[in-house]
Computed example of a mutant assay.
Amino acid sequence: MSAGLRFSIRINNDLSVDRLVGLARIADASGFDQVWVSNDLFLRSAPVLLTVLAERTERIHIGAGIFNPYSIHPAELAMLTATLQEVSGGRFRLGLAAGAAEFLNWAGIARERPLARTAEAVRDVRTLLNGERPAGWAPEGHLRFPMPAPIYLGAMSPRMLGLAGEIADGALPLLYPPEHFATARDQVQQGLDRAGRDAADFDLPACFWVSVDTDAAAAKLALAEKIAYYGAAFAPYLLSRVGLEPADFKDIRPDQVSERMLALGIAGGPEEVVERCRGLIAAGARHLSFGPPLGPDPEAAVALLADEVLPKLRGA
């Protein structure tokens, strides 16, 4: 048996409120441990979505994946976190990261000193959630209703993953391909070692894209559409792990996405998904996080993961 495994799903904030709630409720009823909601700019507001989820789910933990300290000040991040922790009955997890420079640029926001700015935000938000005043703030600069919550860092680079190990309660590393997990784990471990922390107290999900369906070809097409759209923006050093580079994705159509490109995520029928996930478990993953597109029919995909994938992984 694979004891102690955790499972989560990640949902984009481009979905309608009703559809997002429906997916979260399926996950809640199906034994998933966490559901994370993105907060990409100019789409639906994640704080609002998370508030609705807190009211419409029963036991699943809900997470912001991710907020950033450029478009939301640490004081407001702490307010959001504490309020969502209160509304959810202690089920909220804050995902925090520097965010994507390209998207922040859309709003005229410069992403300066990302590593330092993220570290400062984690420090200040945690201080506020503990009912204390951050260094250099005015005497009035403290949260009036302390409400601690776990803080996760969204991280892909070696330095940011190391920082997560030093200061955060968990990390959300997007893995392209999923097998990059072993390297990301080692980079987090270096940070844990520097801080003298125990890895057993740190939540490190293996975060990957998945597309599953009883029709394997349809599942692969759904992932191909996402890879064709985002592929050129992937970090070159991650693409190199499967023998690719950003130029390979220039002006590419979904029907031109190769099997090597599809390997950046996990796509196919339930057995194909189980096989790749077993490889991650063998590499030491104890938390698997399934991200969009999930499948050509996301609702059916989450149910399929719950019925045909998770039980086999738990019994692996």
Rank of each mutant, 00 (worst) to 15 (best):
Y237Q: 13
P178I: 01
D124L: 05
I62Y: 10
Q189F: 13
L280K: 02
P178H: 00
L288R: 04
P205T: 02
L94S: 07
F181N: 01
D193L: 09
L104Y: 08
A219I: 04
S71K: 07
W137S: 12
I11C: 02
V125G: 08
A101L: 00
L129V: 06
R159W: 08
A164Q: 11
F181E: 04
Y237T: 14
A3F: 12
G231I: 01
T81V: 13
T83N: 06
Q85A: 11
M156D: 10
D203S: 08
A285F: 11
D201M: 02
D251S: 14
Y152N: 04
Y152P: 11
R111Q: 14
A135L: 10
G154K: 12
V125D: 03
I60S: 03
R44Q: 11
L50I: 02
R10F: 11
S211T: 03
V210P: 00
R44F: 04
R278W: 06
R253I: 09
S88T: 02
W36V: 04
A116M: 13
R197L: 04
R126F: 00
D28S: 04
L94E: 05
L43S: 12
S2A: 15
T118A: 02
I109H: 03
L280Q: 10
A232V: 14
S88R: 11
D297W: 08
N130T: 08
A100E: 14
P173N: 04
G95I: 05
A46N: 01
S258M: 09
A306S: 09
E259D: 15
S289P: 06
D33T: 00
F7R: 00
P146V: 02
V35Y: 03
T81W: 07
L175Y: 10
I60E: 00
A64W: 02
A228Y: 12
R133A: 11
G90P: 12
L223Y: 07
A116N: 05
E86L: 10
E132L: 10
F202S: 08
L288H: 05
L239T: 10
G131N: 07
P205R: 09
M156K: 09
E120F: 06
A316F: 15
A224L: 11
F249D: 05
F67P: 03
F7E: 03
S16T: 15
V122T: 06
V309Q: 02
L153Q: 07
P236H: 09
Q34P: 00
T81Q: 04
G131K: 11
P246F: 07
A78N: 09
A3E: 14
P178G: 00
A121N: 01
G90D: 08
E259P: 14
M261C: 05
F42N: 02
A3L: 14
E179A: 12
S211I: 09
L161W: 12
A97L: 08
G154Y: 14
T81L: 01
H61N: 15
V302R: 01
H142W: 08
K226I: 13
F202T: 07
A27P: 02
G22A: 15
L20Q: 08
A75S: 15
F202H: 10
